[in-house]
Computed example of a mutant assay.
Amino acid sequence: MLTVYGMKSSGNCYKVELLLEQLGRPYRWVEIDSAAGETRTPQYLAMNLNGKVPLLEVEPGRWLAESNAILCYLADGTPLWPSDPWQRAQVLQWLFFEQYSHEPYIAVARFICRWLAEDHPRRADLPRLRERGAQALAVMEQHLAERPFFAGNEYTIADIALFAYTHAAADGGFDLGGYPQICAWLDRVRAQPQFVAQTTS
Rank of each mutant, 00 (worst) to 15 (best):
E66M: 01
N68W: 03
A69S: 14
A69E: 07
I70P: 00
L71N: 04
C72V: 15
C72L: 15
Y73A: 07
L74Q: 01
L74P: 00
L74D: 05
A75E: 01
D76L: 13
D76V: 15
G77L: 02
G77D: 08
T78E: 01
P79F: 05
W81V: 05
W81P: 02
W81D: 04
W81Y: 10
S83G: 09
P85S: 06
W86S: 12
Q87Y: 00
Q87K: 07
A89H: 06
A89M: 05
A89K: 05
A89L: 04
L92F: 01
L92Q: 08
W94S: 05
W94T: 00
F96P: 11
F96G: 06
F97H: 10
E98Q: 10
E98A: 04
E98M: 03
Q99L: 03
Y100H: 13
S101P: 08
S101C: 12
H102E: 12
E103Y: 04
E103Q: 07
P104F: 02
Y105W: 11
I106G: 04
A107N: 13
V108Q: 05
A109R: 03
R110M: 01
R110A: 06
F111L: 15
R114I: 12
R114A: 14
R114F: 04
R114P: 11
W115L: 14
W115M: 13
A117P: 12
E118D: 15
D119K: 02
D119M: 02
H120S: 09
P121S: 11
R123E: 09
R123K: 10
R123A: 08
A124C: 08
A124H: 09
D125P: 06
D125W: 03
D125N: 11
P127F: 07
P127Q: 11
P127V: 10
P127W: 07
P127L: 11
R128T: 11
R128G: 12
L129G: 00
R130K: 12
E131I: 05
G133E: 00
A134M: 07
A134L: 06
Q135F: 11
Q135E: 14
V139F: 08
V139H: 11
M140F: 13
M140I: 15
M140V: 13
M140K: 15
E141N: 06
E141K: 05
L144G: 07
L144Q: 09
A145S: 15
E146F: 08
R147P: 07
R147K: 13
P148G: 13
P148Y: 00
A151Q: 06
G152S: 08
G152R: 02
N153P: 04
N153D: 15
N153A: 15
E154I: 00
E154C: 07
Y155R: 02
Y155P: 01
I157W: 02
I157D: 04
D159E: 13
D159S: 09
D159A: 08
I160A: 01
A161H: 04
A161P: 12
A161M: 08
L162Y: 09
L162C: 15
F163E: 00
A164E: 00
Y165E: 00
H167M: 09
H167T: 13
G172H: 06
G172F: 04
G172S: 10
D175E: 14
D175R: 09
G178D: 06
P180G: 14
Q181K: 12
Q181W: 06
C183D: 11
A184N: 14
A184K: 14
W185K: 08
L186A: 14
D187P: 03
R188V: 01
